[in-house]
Simulated scan of single mutants.
Amino acid sequence: MRLATVRLHGDPTTRRVVADHGAGWTLLDTALSSVSELLRHPDWQGQASGPRVDEQDIIAFENPVQDPEKVICCGLNYRNHILEMGRELPEFPTLFAKFADTLTGPTSAISPPAAAALDWEAELAVVIGAELFQASSEQAKDGIAGYTVSNDISMRDWQRRTLQWFQGKAHDATTPVGPVVVTADAMDPAQGLRITCAVNGEIVQDSTTDQLVFDCPALVAYVSHFTRLRPGDLILTGTPGGVGMGMEPPQFLADGDLVTTAVEGIGALENLIVHQPT
């Protein structure tokens, strides 16, 4: 099943939740305004579908996970990315956090500071569907609602100001998410989903999700041992090799660049870089 947060013709100021069981989009409970809100219902998988929604009736797909309580990210989790950074495979995940307002939509423009050394980081994101605390990998797997696409757009100059990455990763509205959530019963990242990032149509990252050092259940379980995860929370699983900082010489995003981030079986983000004026 696919789930999405959308705006529709006829009521463009209100977000709606739609579902696709394989036969096209249908409207769910009109009281719901995001997929994350849907996931907080214990019977979210059994929510009845409403009227059919034609594709042309959808004005825009938005970030499906509008208000997560927690956004936790894993760095250095693809084998080829770790090697390009000159590091050894880690014993434990390297983690950092974002705020909910760091997130933005799948087609939203990204407006960093004009002088930022802006880099791309294609990522598979895990959407939590059940409360998890000190979970086993099997419990964590059962608690995953589904998967979506993200890009951990990073200000490398800010990131390098200290040994902590946080300030280079948490600028407002710089982490696109979407366009849909594919439920966990419909896909398995361990099978090796293709993940790519392109800048102005040129592929710069190209890998598969079976290259994760810490796979999705293991990562979710690990995080749950120090903080309680709840439905609607988001975990970004890391980026493969091919980031701009790792190139010789380093390459960064410029004003007007189009970043396309895709994960096989889910969809693609398309985000235009529009630097803030100096």
Rank of each mutant, 00 (worst) to 15 (best):
R2L: 14
V6R: 04
R7S: 02
H9C: 00
V17R: 04
S34A: 15
L38N: 11
R40K: 14
Q45S: 13
A48R: 14
G50S: 10
P51A: 14
E55Y: 00
I58T: 03
I59F: 12
A60Q: 03
E62M: 05
E62A: 02
D67W: 10
D67E: 05
E69P: 09
K70Q: 14
C74S: 15
N80D: 15
E91D: 12
F92W: 09
F96M: 07
D101V: 06
T102H: 02
T104K: 10
T104P: 01
S108I: 09
S111V: 01
P112H: 07
P112Q: 04
A114M: 10
A114W: 03
A115V: 08
A117M: 15
V126A: 11
V127M: 04
G129Q: 01
A130Q: 14
E131Q: 15
L132Y: 09
F133L: 13
Q134Y: 02
A140P: 08
A140K: 00
G143M: 14
I144W: 01
A145W: 01
N151D: 15
S154R: 04
S154C: 15
M155N: 14
Q159E: 13
T162A: 11
P176S: 08
V177M: 08
P179L: 06
P179Y: 10
V180R: 13
V182E: 03
D185N: 14
M187W: 01
D188G: 10
P189A: 13
P189T: 13
A190H: 07
G192D: 00
A198W: 00
V204F: 03
V204D: 01
T208I: 14
Q211K: 12
D215Y: 11
P217M: 01
A218I: 11
A221S: 14
A221D: 11
V223W: 05
S224Y: 06
H225I: 12
D233V: 07
L234W: 01
G238E: 07
G244S: 07
M247N: 07
P249E: 05
L258C: 11
T261Y: 05
E270T: 11
Q276M: 12
P277N: 09
T278E: 14
